[in-house]
Design a protein around this nucleic acid. Structure first.
Lengths: 155, 155
DNA sequence: CTCGTCAGTTCCCTGAGGGAACTCATAGGG
DNA sequence: CCCTATGAGTTCCCTCAGGGAACTGACGAG
C-alpha cells in the first residue's frame, strides 16, 4: 500500500512487536528475559525477533561463544522506532493511566527535567499536531485525492 | 499491564486500527468508504469501529435520519491519537519509502511549509528522542527497576 | 413491486497465536 | 561418566480471531 503508516505497521504492526521493542530499549536483550517479562509464547517471540532482525530494526549479536548465546540490540533504525514508543507512552499517560499516574517518567538529558514529548514542526519549530496540518499528495503518491481534516466537502 | 505502551496498544494495537483511524482522519467517515478503501472484512471493521467508539476514540453520529445513516468522527482523544500516525508516517518515510519519496506531504498551518514532526521536550523545547532520556519509575509503577538505554550493566 | 444502497450481521473455514513438551550445545557437580 | 541446569530456540496440537461471501433491514428511486 502506498502509505507510510501501512509500511510502518508492516514492520511493527503485530501487537507484540512494540512491547518487544520496548523491552530491548530498556535493556532486556535476551530471549529468556523478554519471554518471561511479556509472557509471550516462545514460538511467536522467535518469529518476531527474526522478523525485526530481517527488517533491520534489531541486530543479533553473540555475547558468548561457548556456550553459544545471542542477544538482540537496537539498530539506528530501531532506535528511531522507539520515538514512536515515547508518543504511545504520552497518549497512554494522558488518556488511560487514571488516578495512579504514569508508571514511568522520562528525564531529558539536555535539561535534566522530567518531561514528555511534544510534536513540533521540522521547519518552524512550533507545535505540529495532526490537527495543524494539511495533507497533500507527495511524489510517491498513487494519485488519490485527499481531503484535509475537518475541511468542507469539496464543492 | 502497568505500561502506557501496552494500554495504548490495547486501544489501537490491532493491525487495522491505525489504518481505520487514518481513514477517518482524512475524511472517510462512513462504513462503506472505509471498507472499500482498506479492503478489510466487514465483520472486523464493524468490530473495530465498535471498539474504538466504546473506547472514546471515535464518536458515532447520524448524518441522515431517513434512511438512518451513521458516520464516525474523531473525538479529542482520537485526534490526539492521530499524532501517533504522524510519527509512524515520519518513520515510514525515512526508512521504507524508497526512491519514490513520501506518498503524502504535510503542510504546517502555522508556517505554511512542508515539514514533518520532530519530537521535542515539553520542558525545554529541545529535541527529545528515545536516546535522549533516562527512564525512571513513576507514581503508577509496579516497582521493577529499569536500566537506562545504553547504560553499562549495573556493577 | 422490484432494484439499489448503506450499514451492518451471520455462517463457515483457514491460519495465526498460545501452551507445553522436545532439541541442542554447553557447564557444573558428584 | 552420568545427571541436571540453562539459554535459545523448534515442534506439536488446539483454539479462536480474521477473511470471504451471503443475508438482513430500512429506506428511496423508478
Amino acid at each position: 500500500m502506498a502509505c507510510s503508516i501501512a509500511r510502518t505497521l508492516d514492520v511493527v504492526g503485530e501487537p507484540w512487536s512494540p512491547l518487544i521493542l520496548r523491552d530491548v530499549y530498556v535493556g532486556m536483550n535476551r530471549f529468556e528475559q523478554i519471554q518471561q517479562d511479556l509472557g509471550i509464547s516462545r514460538k511467536v517471540l522467535a518469529e518476531r525477533l527474526r522478523w525485526l532482525t530481517e527488517n533491520g530494526v534489531l541486530e543479533r549479536r553473540a555475547y558468548s561463544e561457548r556456550p553459544p548465546r545471542d542477544e538482540y540490540l537496537l539498530t539506528a533504525k530501531g532506535r528511531e522506532l522507539c520515538d514512536l514508543l515515547l508518543v504511545m507512552v504520552r497518549w497512554g499517560d494522558r488518556w488511560t493511566s487514571g488516578e495512579a499516574g504514569p508508571p514511568v517518567l522520562y528525564r531529558h538529558h539536555a535539561c535534566g527535567e522530567i518531561g514528555h514529548v511534544e510534536l513540533c514542526c521540522s521547519s518552524c519549530g512550533q507545535p505540529m499536531r495532526a490537527t495543524d496540518v494539511d495533507v497533500l499528495p507527495g511524489p510517491g503518491a498513487g494519485g488519490e485525492p485527499l481531503r484535509t481534516p475537518d475541511a468542507e466537502p469539496t464543492g
